[in-house]
């Protein structure tokens, strides 16, 4: 099952979260858009961390992985909320 959420933030940045669920766990996660993240690999780490997680422990995986990233164009809490909302749609 695939869920997608697109949101535009106040300085015009567009962020899309796409999550593929299979059998109650995350099979694939993609965070795309025109934001900046330093270091860039931080976003790929979040995506990897999400894989294999279920609805209960996904948020925590994002929260712990996001700590070391400086985001420009969206706030960490916005991204966490987007992942959560995307997952909630799946329930």
């Amino acid at each position: 099952m695939e869920r997608e959420l697109v949101r535009k933030f106040k300085d015009g940045k567009l962020v899309k979260v796409k999550i593929v669920m299979e059998g109650g766990v995350i099979k694939d996660a993609r965070i795309t858009g025109d934001f900046f993240a330093h270091p860039e690999e931080g976003i790929e780490i979040i995506e990897k961390e999400l894989i294999g997680k279920d609805l209960c422990n996904a948020r925590q995986a994002v929260e712990s992985a996001i700590g070391g990233i400086t985001l420009i164009g969206l706030r960490a809490e916005d991204l966490i909320a987007m992942v959560q909302e995307c997952l909630d749609r799946d329930r």
Binding site: K16, T32, G33, D34, F35, E40, I43
Partner: peptide, 9 residues
């Protein structure tokens, strides 16, 4: 395109 962008979009 930016590092995080989806090309087809």
């Amino acid at each position: 395109i930016g590092y995080f962008q989806e090309i087809r979009e």
